[in-house]
Structure formats: structure tokens, C-alpha cells
């Protein structure tokens, strides 16, 4: 990808290069959006729906989203399930191993906010966005496979607005606090968990 990144930067500075860059962006976004390979970071219940989604009935492959267990093959990490304090460093490490550009889908309430495990527990990270930049939040406990398909399609829309020029592209990695140290504010009035 380094070559492509340099190309984008060079074209951006060239007079008239903007037109070529726009056409290149269109090609890149089209190809990226049509083959978002997933890193199935399934930890808990949502992992079952993630498996169901890629099997014969819901058939994710038709969207070009093939689950690959190796982070180095993947474009999008689907965090499906509760992330505990013990697990968070491993998730961070796997995310770091994925090549840029990379996206994160937080699947299920646990990955979005802690969900049912928001209150009273000592070991759960309240949402994967405490240490990863999340692109698509997917609510549900667990979400249906159809909603995961919708999330993938939404992500594809988002990918289609990206540019390969460094200045125009969204920030791919942001400096975030180490897992566990981040603190959310007080819980919303009324609470948000099932019960």
C-alpha cells in the first residue's frame, strides 16, 4: 500500500493531478468496498450470529465479505461480543496487525457500550470504542445477521467517500489511550440495560 499512498501524495501536488486522483479514488473505493474481508473478532454470543451470517442461509460471501482468521488479510474487524479487560490487549494487538486502511464494526450492545454488562461488573470494557476507532455501531443483543449485512453495506458507503490522498483521507489511526485506562462519564439517567 505504500506505493499507492505515495502515488496519492504525488498526484495531489501535481498541477492537474486532482482529476487523475479523483478517478483513481473512484477505482480504489470501488475495489475496496466490494471486497471488505472480515476479521471475525467473535468473543461471545454475537459470534454465533457472525457464523450464521457467513453460512449458507445468509451467505455473506455475495457481498465480498469473507471471514479471514488472519488479521493481515483483513480490511474490517467485526468485534462481536463482550470485550473484557483481560481480552482488550489481544484485540488491540490484532487491530494493530491489520494493514491500513482498516475499519471496525462494533457488533452488538456489548461491543457498542457494554450493553447488559454496563453496570455492576468489574471486568468488562464498556464498549470497544474505549480503545479502537469504531466506524459502524450495530445495536442488538445479538443483532440479526441481516443487520450485520446492513452494517457491511453502510460501511461500503463510508468507504466510497475515502480518498487515497493523505490530506483528504480520513484519519485512519488515531492516538487512543491504552485499554482499560479510558473512563467514560457517568451513566445516562434511566440506564440503558435490559432488566
Amino acid at each position: 500500500m505504500a506505493f499507492v499512498d505515495d502515488l496519492g501524495a504525488a498526484l495531489d501536488k501535481t498541477p492537474g493531478g486532482g482529476i487523475i486522483l479523483t478517478s483513481l479514488d473512484a477505482v480504489m473505493d470501488w475495489s475496496r468496498g466490494k471486497s471488505l474481508w472480515m476479521m471475525p473478532m467473535g468473543t461471545a454470543c454475537c459470534a454465533m450470529e457472525l457464523i450464521a451470517a457467513s453460512f449458507s442461509r445468509f451467505d455473506f460471501d455475495r457481498h465480498g465479505s469473507i471471514p479471514r482468521p488472519d488479521p493481515r488479510h483483513c480490511d474490517v474487524m467485526v468485534v462481536a461480543g463482550t470485550i473484557t479487560r483481560k481480552m482488550a490487549p489481544a484485540v488491540q494487538r490484532l487491530y494493530d496487525q491489520m494493514p491500513d486502511p482498516k475499519w471496525v464494526i462494533a457488533m452488538g450492545n456489548c461491543a457498542v457500550s457494554g450493553g447488559i454488562f454496563y453496570y455492576d461488573t468489574y471486568s468488562v470494557v464498556r464498549g470497544v470504542d474505549e480503545f479502537l476507532p469504531v466506524d459502524v455501531y450495530l445495536a442488538g443483543c445479538p443483532p440479526r445477521p441481516e443487520s450485520l449485512q446492513d452494517a457491511i453495506l453502510r460501511l461500503r458507503e463510508q468507504v466510497s467517500t475515502d480518498s487515497i490522498a493523505p490530506g483528504k483521507s480520513r484519519k485512519l489511526t488515531s492516538p487512543l489511550p491504552a485499554p482499560g485506562s479510558a473512563r467514560r462519564g457517568e451513566p445516562p439517567v434511566g440506564g440503558g440495560d435490559a432488566g
Binding site: T43, G81, T84, K86, M87, T121, V124
Partner: peptide, 9 residues
């Protein structure tokens, strides 16, 4: 790695 403290909750 998935110890969520359900017994405490």
C-alpha cells in the same frame, strides 16, 4: 478472557 462477572452482577 470472557469473564464478565455475572455472579457478581
Amino acid at each position: 478472557h470472557l469473564h464478565r462477572g455475572i455472579e457478581k452482577m
